[in-house]
Computed example of a mutant assay.
Amino acid sequence: MKKLILSAAFAALAAGGALAQDTVRIATEGAYPPFNFINDAGKPDGFEVELFTSLCEAAELTCEWVTTDWDSIIPNLQSGNYDAIAAGMSITEERKAVIDFTQAYYPATFSAYAAPSADADLSGVVAAQVNTIQAAHVAETDATLLEFATPDEAVAAVRNGEADAVFADNDFLKPVVDESNGEFVWAGEQIQLGEGIGLGIRKSDTELKAKFDAAIQTVKDDGTLNELLKKWFGADSVTF
């Protein structure tokens, strides 16, 4: 049944003719579970990988996954090293100035602080991943922002005493808090940022954007996308 639904999704993607390229290269970071990560077999995995791999298979498209550092992920898209970005990337006005996005395949949700204690000094030193909406938010507060290349490094900065708290997507931090045996707890209030997460695409690739937009809308309408959100983020996940 699910294959039929996904096939319907990419019937919309296939409408209007074949894509200009034979292979669609999708970049991800591979370091932001459960959105994307590298599994025990050394392959990209996670919510985004399952979603877009399934859509590509249903459309009989050849889609290849490319892993790249977060800090260079947009410049490499602009340089033509791949065709799209599926890497937990929030849709923001700043990013829309340089690349396009499909409609959101992950709803606008909340970011949160995690720290060794609930009364941690959130105006002290706060760690965040570089070039994220979380880092931009911290930079606008009274806190001292300490940026890192990966979210895991931002978490580690709190563990080793470099930072008072880490600020990241709630869904990324939830397993960090839940599995820390009290080493991390939630601090402060959750904050809603961004416009949701979309597939990043070059501004010139209007055909590719339109086709993925149609496919994402189809899996929203039939409930398949919500099923995947609950699978990867839990039964109480924010859905469409």
Rank of each mutant, 00 (worst) to 15 (best):
A165L: 06
A168R: 00
E153P: 03
N81L: 11
L6M: 12
P34I: 02
V158W: 11
Y106H: 11
A118H: 08
A215R: 03
P175E: 00
A11S: 14
D205F: 06
N226E: 09
G124E: 11
D178A: 14
G200S: 03
A139F: 10
Q21E: 15
K43H: 07
V138E: 04
E64L: 08
G161Y: 12
K231P: 05
G16K: 11
S204C: 01
D100P: 09
A12L: 10
D45Q: 10
P175Q: 00
N76V: 01
V155G: 11
Q103K: 11
T132V: 07
N36V: 04
F47N: 05
K3H: 12
S117D: 09
G80Q: 07
A97H: 14
F10V: 15
T109A: 08
Y106K: 10
Q21W: 05
V66F: 01
V66Y: 02
Q190V: 08
F10S: 15
E48K: 05
F240W: 15
G88P: 09
Q190L: 07
D222S: 09
E50V: 09
P33T: 11
E183Q: 15
E94K: 15
P116F: 02
K230M: 08
A15I: 05
A59R: 01
T109E: 05
L145Q: 04
F184I: 06
F10R: 15
T144C: 12
V238D: 14
W65T: 00
Q78W: 06
S180P: 01
T218N: 13
F37L: 13
T132G: 06
M1R: 14
D119S: 15
A14Y: 09
A118L: 01
I38H: 03
G17K: 02
A139S: 15
A14I: 12
G30C: 03
L122G: 13
S54H: 03
G16D: 09
E60H: 02
K231C: 03
S204D: 13
L122R: 12
K96L: 14
A12N: 11
G80V: 07
Q103P: 02
E227A: 14
E50H: 13
T144V: 13
I216N: 07
G234C: 10
A143N: 04
D83P: 12
V177M: 09
